[in-house]
């Protein structure tokens, strides 16, 4: 009897040992492909194995960091973007638009506030390409900054932005992910469009065999910090494409507005020029048209960027403060238009 207990104990120790051994990172760590492709919703971000050092946001091999020329405004959050494609597959370039990522790929975006030692990771959003389509999930970081847990219902977190504004920061819920990432009823990526990616980065990815070829029309949107070198039109249209057009386009959340702010749209009415609002409600304020050439202060488009009140403020999700740089870019663009 005693012997039996002892051997049971030994067995459980062995088991525990195995578990610990598995938890210790091996020298070369790889992404857990099953977590991306198989059903279910992993509870912890660490289940995917995207990071060698999570707190430092240091990715494992085959997970590559990238940036967008013009990024979405997120209250000044530092955003760390990563792309992963599974072994034996290739990302396919498809013109200036979205890179075509194979099943098993993932896009990872971490939102952080604070600098240096004071930097805190708030949330990481993942887009997983499964056989039945893309799945968007939000993960909320713990206080210890060791891991992030799935937060399907989202969360609110009090924090201070780089501009010193105290805000209630909204981590989106799983459905809200789709409000921006939804197109024709499917979830799709938004960010990695060739036109908004650096040519150098794309060339490196092509040279390394991750992307099949250099996409045409790459690197067209101005790099936001250098937008002063771009035309007023390009800076504003890049901003609207990245910040608004995921909803304001056919097939997406705000399609019923008839406003289409995509970079490739060139019909003035679709872009809001002398277009009356459809269902703006009080969002329109006292104004009559989306964009009045030469008169930014009479333009609903700008009004909804400036007023920071739920029910009026645009975008409806993903920000709690006014983006002064974006307002400036759009204001200059409208002011520069020939009045009619």
């Amino acid at each position: 009897m005693k012997l039996g207990t002892a051997s049971l104990l030994a067995a459980s120790l062995l088991l525990a040992g195995t578990v610990i051994a598995r938890a210790t990172p091996p020298p070369e760590q790889y992404v857990n492909d099953a977590a991306i492709t198989e059903g279910g919703l992993p509870r912890l971000l660490s289940a995917y194995g995207f990071f060698a050092d999570a707190a430092a946001q240091e990715p494992v091999p085959h997970v590559y960091s990238y940036r967008l020329n013009t990024p979405l405004y997120s209250d000044g959050a530092e955003k760390l973007r990563f792309i992963y494609r599974p072994a034996g597959s290739q990302i396919v370039a498809s013109g200036e638009g979205l890179l075509d990522l194979p099943v098993g790929s993932a896009l990872i975006k971490t939102f952080a506030f604070g600098e240096g030692e004071g930097r805190r990771l708030i949330e990481t959003r993942v887009l997983l390409h499964r056989a039945d389509g893309w799945l968007a999930l939000p993960y909320l970081w713990n206080d210890e900054q060791t891991d992030a847990r799935l937060a399907v219902a989202g969360a609110r977190i009090d924090l201070t932005t780089p501009r010193g504004e105290d805000i209630s920061y909204r981590v989106p819920n799983k459905n809200q992910c789709k409000e921006c990432h939804g197109l024709d009823g499917e979830v799709v990526p938004i960010g990695p469009k060739a036109r908004n990616l650096s040519g150098d980065w794309l060339e490196q990815m092509v040279a390394a065999g991750h992307i099949d070829r250099m996409p045409e029309g790459a690197d067209r949107l101005p790099v936001w910090e250098h937008r002063g070198k771009a035309s007023l039109g390009d800076a504003a249209r890049a901003y609207l494409d990245v910040n608004c057009a995921h909803c304001h386009r056919p097939g997406a959340t705000a399609s019923n507005s008839g406003l289409d702010l995509r970079w490739e749209q060139d019909d003035p009415r679709a872009l809001g020029i002398m277009k009356r609002p459809t269902a703006a409600g009080r969002g329109a304020g006292d104004l009559l048209f989306d964009v009045v050439p030469g008169d930014p202060d009479a333009s609903i488009l700008l009004h909804r960027m400036i007023v920071n009140e739920p029910g009026v403020a645009m975008p409806e999700l993903g920000k709690a403060t006014v983006d002064k740089e974006g307002v400036e870019a759009v204001r200059k663009w409208i002011a520069d238009m020939e009045p009619r």
Binding site: R156, S168, R170, N175, Q176, K178, E179, G182, P310, G311, E316, L317, A320
Partner: peptide, 12 residues
């Protein structure tokens, strides 16, 4: 006391 989103309930 709603602080965010464009509606009370969105059904898609």
């Amino acid at each position: 006391t709603q602080a965010g989103a464009g509606e009370g309930l969105l059904v898609t």
